[in-house]
Design a binder for these strands. Structure first.
Lengths: 148, 148
DNA sequence: CTCTATTTTGTAACCATTACAACTTTAAAA
DNA sequence: TTTTAAAGTTGTAATGGTTACAAAATAGAG
């Protein structure tokens, strides 16, 4: 669950997604987007950089930051807002929620816990584009560890 | 809505809450907790500091940080996790959701959009303590501004 | 092939947050 | 009271994630 992978996303598909979003499919962009589509482990910028750098020795961390911003703006990637944590990213685009262990900080995917569509707050003058549901608590590992 | 206030919370009441949480009701703690209970505007650390500093010239920003952490741990205050923003705080404790304008960054309170209690993820080994629902979009002001 | 816009890179700066040690205040005991 | 120890506050310095910026590299158009 945590280290779920999805190797099905080919470079061709990634390239198509970038082009569709009006972005040039550079090596770096393909690498960053690919990393997020192949690992659903909600990595930090640093994690992404560390995974890619060995294969791309000239890669700059600034590029990872820039690329992630571009990908987020294009909607190809989500950024998660997690208490007491660095920014984290998610290449998993189908609607789903997150569980954050307040003990170890790990992030788990959850099925989207919402029966209906996005609620409307038009009466308040608010146009809702996106919803983010996060649960906080203890994962099994941390509960077991604490029990001992 | 945005600058909603609640002057009904007296110092005596704030003091009682602190003591009940096992915290000494120091001047600084009363001030920080009071600020968050009197303004429901989801301030940043800096905003809180700026509001209190004029009346408390010796107040240190470190104290504001320390105090907020202590208050959060005690459950007297919530911290919000908002995309592309500094940490923000909320002294409004009844369950409610938030709307964040992706244009101006303002945070609006919403009624809690959840019919049932916290869902259970026991089957996944996850013990849920807390839920956070955030909506992102455009507020009326920013929509109007963009329309022009 | 040349030119120009786009993208990437590395360094330096920025700024929110935390570590730490000194100082102050408080509460309780003597 | 006075003393004493614990709790709380303060300011400075360090940390570390993120961004600004300018130079270098790259890619697509003509």
């Amino acid at each position: 669950m945590q280290t779920q992978q999805n190797k099905d996303v080919t470079t061709v598909e990634l390239s198509r997604r970038l082009l569709e979003a009006g972005l040039r499919p550079s090596v770096q962009r393909l690498a960053v987007l690919g990393d997020l589509c192949h690992h659903y482990d909600h990595p930090t910028v640093d994690t992404i950089y560390s995974r890619l750098q060995p294969q791309m020795p000239t890669l700059s961390k600034t590029t990872v930051y820039n690329t992630l911003r571009v990908l987020c703006d294009a909607g190809l990637v989500r950024s998660l807002n997690i208490e007491y944590a660095n920014q984290r990213f998610d290449g998993h685009l189908e609607p789903h929620d997150h569980f954050i262990c307040t003990c170890c900080g790990r992030v788990y995917d959850l099925p989207h816990n919402r029966t209906a569509d996005l609620p409307s707050f038009e009466d308040l003058g608010l146009q809702v584009d996106r919803e983010e549901i996060s649960y906080y608590g203890f994962c099994r590992e941390c509960r077991d560890k604490q029990a001992r």
